[in-house]
Design a protein around this nucleic acid. Structure first.
Length: 512
RNA sequence: GACGGUGUAGCUCAGGGGUAGAGCGACGCUCUCAUAAGGCGUAAGUCGGAGGUUCAAAUCCUCCCACCGUCACCA
């Protein structure tokens, strides 16, 4: 049984509606999933919502609705977004679902049976204003660093023996030097663990909205323990004979925001070691988006609603911008200027116009039929070489989750195509009735378009499929293949070319 | 404060001992098939600063300056 490529987003906390950051994570995962499918792999792609915790309970109370209705409502917003973004996720897990809660409890019991959990007291200086605990040495003049007053509080709590896993984790890290991407983040994780780990408080008694602990009434599970197990409960855990679990676990990619890296790179592996389960292959931490150089925040009121922006510039452009603008792992700036300049120059002027000019010449000279190849000269061989080179780079970068570079390679190919056309001057050949040359050149450019639009499929599924259909070479998403990128004789002689509307109109006006 | 990273053309960044690179932007020229798109070209940097090693340093070493990240229970 060949293992599937298992890709996950974090489960999103339903305290607020989705913003561009959520969309970003999901789109990255989706593009990766689509790419792997083109490689011929079976993929399982999971996303969902995290619905427990004190904050949720409070938010629901403020809005005067019962907690379950509140999370139903909020979760739906995230679920709706999966279709808006055209995610190809195979499941959508909710932590309030019975199957998840049962799995989480079983995970807990398994840790408990193995002696990895013990009951003690959780204590610290608590600031009501900040809703946060502080260490003794963090206090300034007996107050929180934020200036809020603090009280000493103690509550009974279960602890996970995290301290025990310092050495095993460090060993694991050194044996798996690519466990965390990017490397700089991995270094931070390693440093953190090297400084020593304290046991982790993993239950709360101060609120009730969470997964009940099997053995002790009044305790609910610490949200992170609850949340992280979603990656296995979605696969049918604790049923170890579950086909889904066997085929997918361990995960190939947990893609997360940099803010929650620690939970995925330290706690989660430790939990799994304790439960004697296999560890995920790679944790990918991406950066954050600012908006016009400002941090996104409700108080500034600059939170970008993905649905709103998609209404303006279209899904493909949105997905393209996010994955192209910034090296994956870095922070990015979601600015009007950057979006317009990126979309207009690369999508409209480069790709869009390229397709348009080739289509126009093809249809005016050869009717609505795919022209045939004649003899190849050096100039054509050079293009073929460029294609093969590009396709290799594209794959290399994609496998390294360097979306931006993969797209950069693709754009370079389009530029080479544009240049080739200018050099060949097919419009002159048409006037001179050099039909075979003309036919050869246009066919090669149509193949290039096909290849480019197959490469863009994981990022821009709508536009890609539209173009491939228009070239009579689309046979369903599931039949798109990476292999076809290496074949410059893929289209069928004489098949129809269908005219298409402008693929990427300029977007200046839509954003102003 | 400790540890790590970054500082290269107006902007975003690549390069990493042997006479400074790309994309975008600006400016100029040009084809006309095309979304006033494409192609070609020009300008622009004493490669954060100061020392040092070397025949030779943006590239290695030391110090300094500036900025960023991490330093546990914050979704």
């Amino acid at each position: 049984m060949e293992k599937n490529i298992y890709i996950t987003t974090p489960i999103y906390y339903v305290n607020d509606k989705p913003h561009v950051g959520h969309a970003y994570t999901s789109i990255a995962c989706d593009s990766l999933a689509r790419f792997y499918k083109m490689l011929g792999k079976k993929v399982f792609f999971l996303t969902g919502t995290d619905e427990h915790g004190l904050k949720i309970q409070q938010s629901a109370k403020e809005k005067n609705i019962d907690t379950q209705s509140f999370v139903d409502l909020m979760s739906k917003k995230f679920h709706d977004l999966t279709s808006v973004l055209m995610l190809t996720n195979d499941d959508f897990i909710r932590t309030t679902s019975e199957k998840h809660k049962e799995g989480a409890r079983q995970f807990w019991s398994s840790l408990e049976e193995k002696g990895e959990i013990y009951l003690d007291k959780y204590s610290g200086w608590y600031s009501i204003r900040d809703e946060a605990y502080y260490q003794e040495d963090e206090l300034i003049d007996g107050k929180a660093p934020t200036g809020g007053s603090v009280d000493w509080v103690e509550e009974p709590s279960y602890f996970f023996r995290l301290s025990k896993y310092q050495k095993p984790l460090l060993d694991f890290y050194s044996k798996n030097p690519n466990f965390v991407y990017p490397q700089s983040r991995f270094n931070e994780v390693i440093k953190f663990v090297e400084r020593g780990l304290k046991d982790l408080s993993i239950s709360r008694t101060s609120f009730t909205w969470g997964v009940d602990i099997p053995s002790k009434k009044g305790h609910v599970m610490y949200v992170w323990l609850d949340a992280l197990t979603n990656y296995i409960t979605a696969l049918g855990y604790p049923d170890n004979s579950s086909e889904k679990l066997k085929k997918n676990w361990p995960a190939n990619y947990h893609i997360v925001g940099k803010d929650i890296l620690r939970f995925h790179a330290i706690y989660w592996p430790a939990f799994l070691m304790a439960a004697e389960m296999r560890l995920p292959s790679q944790i990918i931490a991406h950066g954050w988006w600012t908006v016009e150089k400002e941090k996104m925040s409700k108080s500034i009121g600059n939170v970008v609603d993905p649905i709103d922006i998609i209404d303006r510039i279209g899904l493909d452009s949105f997905r393209y911008f996010l994955l192209r603008e910034v090296p994956f792992g870095n922070d990015g700036d979601f600015s009007k200027h950057a979006i317009i300049s990126r979309i207009n120059s690369e999508l409209s002027n480069n790709i869009g116009n390229f397709i348009n000019r080739v289509y126009a010449m093809s249809t005016s000279n050869f009717g609505n039929q795919i022209p045939r190849y004649g003899q190849f000269l050096e100039s054509e061989k050079k293009i073929e070489l460029k294609i093969l080179e590009t396709v290799e780079q594209y794959k290399y970068y994609f496998l390294n989750v360097e979306f931006s570079k993969a797209l950069g390679a693709m754009i370079e190919l389009v530029s080479a195509g544009n240049k080739y056309i200018d050099t060949m001057q097919p419009w002159s050949l048409a006037k001179e009735n050099q039909t075979e040359r003309l036919s050869t050149i246009l066919r090669l450019m149509l193949e290039t378009i096909r290849i480019v639009c197959t490469m863009t499929y994981p990022i821009m599924p709508l536009a890609s499929v539209k173009v491939l259909k228009s070239l009579s070479c689309f046979d369903g998403d599931e039949n798109l293949s990476y292999e076809s990128l290496k074949n410059i004789n893929f289209l069928s002689d004489g098949s129809p070319i269908e005219k298409i509307d402008l693929l990427f109109p300029k977007i200046d006006k839509k954003l102003s």
